[in-house]
Amino acid sequence: MIRRAFLALAALTALTGLTSQALTAGIGEDGLHKQDWFALTFRDVAEDIEAARDEGKRLVMVFEQRGCIYCAKMHEDLLSDPEVSDFIKANFKVVQYNMFGDEEVTDLDGDVLTEKTAARKWGYVFTPTLVFLPEDVPEGMTVAEAAVATMPGAFGKWTFLNMFKWVAEKGYEGDEHFQKYHARIINELRAAGRLEAE
């Protein structure tokens, strides 16, 4: 009887350890949530734009910080949704930046900075902040100047996904502002009976 109780306790301990490990597997040593499909690069933004283009994709940079509840929401609620993640993976190369990190970054204008000094230079103060870059490397501009769109903060599924779609469709080159585009898509989803609560 004691032996059975011991084996049951050992099995429960192993299961609890496994569950705990699975829950923390998505957090890196820097304390940021991770997606296994995020790109690991040298953070040379011009090279990353070119690499994304060579893959038929666009570059998006995402700024996060340790302990950010909105970053956790983005990873747990949005990036875990196959409709969202599949579209992003197919169309974008995502590179993660630590808002207060010390990794080296090379700006489009050639400045070599740390992640935290780059965030300060570019004026990014919220996490998460997603920065969408053009298809071609602009000359003599900073990342902030070259960005075709910036999304500060965490939003609901459709706002989040529609921003990626608007950029992929180059909506920033046309006359339909993102908010108008988003409203149109929401109306189409509502008409199709697909609208989920934001």
Rank of each mutant, 00 (worst) to 15 (best):
R53V: 08
A72N: 02
F87W: 07
G28D: 12
A183F: 03
L18I: 09
G56P: 02
A144F: 10
G101M: 11
N98E: 12
V95T: 08
A149T: 08
E139K: 14
V60P: 11
M99D: 14
E103R: 03
D102E: 14
G101D: 10
L59A: 02
L161T: 07
D86F: 03
T16M: 10
F178M: 09
H33C: 05
E173C: 01
T117F: 13
Y172R: 09
G171E: 06
R184C: 06
E76L: 09
L32D: 07
M99A: 15
D86V: 02
F164V: 13
L12V: 12
N98R: 14
A11E: 01
W158G: 03
K170M: 06
T114V: 15
E145P: 07
I27H: 00
K121W: 05
E64L: 02
V95P: 02
W37C: 09
M163I: 12
D36C: 00
R43T: 05
T13Q: 00
S85A: 07
A46Q: 05
M61P: 06
T127F: 11
M163D: 04
R190L: 07
G110Q: 05
L113C: 00
E47S: 15
G174K: 11
W158A: 09
H182C: 04
H177V: 13
G174A: 11
D136P: 01
G123P: 04
V125I: 12
I69T: 04
G67F: 04
T129S: 10
F38G: 01
L78R: 00
K165M: 14
E64F: 02
V148K: 07
G156F: 03
D102W: 02
A192R: 13
R194T: 05
E139N: 15
V143Y: 05
R120I: 15
L59T: 07
I186V: 12
L15R: 14
R4I: 01
L78F: 00
I88C: 03
T24G: 00
K73P: 01
T159A: 09
R43W: 04
T41Q: 08
L133I: 02
E198S: 10
I185A: 10
A5N: 00
V94G: 02
K180T: 15
M99E: 14
E47Q: 14
E196Q: 12
V95R: 08
D109I: 02
A5P: 01
V167W: 14
